[in-house]
């Protein structure tokens, strides 16, 4: 792990006003917004699942793991990395450092999210509060690590491809909680729409199971049918992301200049 890359990835987030504003928005504004709007049970559940679930975690970690932190905003960050990798820094070290920096950032911001949300709820005398007990904080830490790993992988793809995949995953994460019931008799009235619906739900479920690396420790340890499979799947997902990210970065070629 390269302490330099880890440290400067974090410092870079506070380096310019736009970035700081982005952080403030993610950390403070979003939970307050959700708190003001989440009035009744159903909306509250939906919005809380956004706050607690993959969506915000992915958005935060995506913004933390940057390659090119120069202001030139190029789509090809090769020129920046070519100087970086002339140093005695292995690509695996680079990946691990970015991962840990991203995880720390996500953890802190999501913790702030929960605190701010609870404070906003209490101020508005609402009763729905998000838990800050041992289970939820440990789950938060583990989720921070795995979402950061997923984002490191996505950032290892060529920029445009990675961005497309990120957007797809983000939208799909919102679909999951919204479509978790079956309506009676729906399929007979609008068969095409129904099958389209079901396809989206199916894709969302597959992504939920194999891609989104979230884990809920309370659910695992409170289950009457205890199984270590969720924990093993969690670790396996995370390692797979880091492995592929490393392989991709190892194989990546940095072309620059006219040749």
């Amino acid at each position: 792990m390269s302490y330099a890359v880890f440290l400067y990835t974090l410092i870079a987030k506070f380096s310019n006003p736009a970035s700081i504003l982005g952080l403030l928005f993610l950390a403070f504004v979003i939970p307050v917004m959700i708190s003001s709007v989440a009035l009744d049970g159903r909306t509250a559940d939906l919005l809380l699942s956004v706050l607690n679930g993959p969506t915000i975690a992915m958005a935060i970690s995506y913004s933390f793991i940057q390659d090119n932190i120069a202001n030139t905003r190029q789509m090809n960050d090769g020129e920046y990395l070519s100087l970086l990798f002339s140093r005695p820094l292995s690509r695996a070290e680079y990946i691990v450092s970015k991962w840990l920096a991203g995880a720390l950032g996500v953890f802190c911001i999501m913790l702030i999210n929960i605190l701010v949300f609870n404070i906003a709820q209490l101020i508005q005398s609402r009763s729905t509060l998000l838990g800050l007990d041992f289970w939820s904080i440990s789950s938060l830490a583990l989720n921070a690590l795995s979402y950061a790993a997923l984002m490191v992988l996505i950032r290892s793809f060529p920029m445009r491809l990675g961005m497309t995949i990120f957007v797809i995953l983000l939208y799909a994460s919102l679909f999951g909680p919204a479509l978790n019931f079956s309506i009676n008799g729906y399929e007979s009235s609008l068969p095409l729409a129904y099958y389209f619906f079901q396809t989206i739900v199916f894709i969302s479920n597959v992504l939920q199971q194999f891609v989104y690396p979230g884990i809920d420790l309370y659910e695992v340890f409170n289950s009457t049918r205890f199984s270590i499979l969720p924990l093993v799947a969690y670790a396996s997902n995370m390692l797979l992301y880091l492995f592929f990210a490393t392989v991709l970065l190892n194989r990546r070629e940095f072309s620059y200049g006219e040749d």
Partner: peptide, 18 residues
Amino acid sequence: QVKAQSAFLPERPNFDTW
């Protein structure tokens, strides 16, 4: 070890402007 003993100046280096 090779990288530790070498240095590189790209044609158009992209520094961290902040």
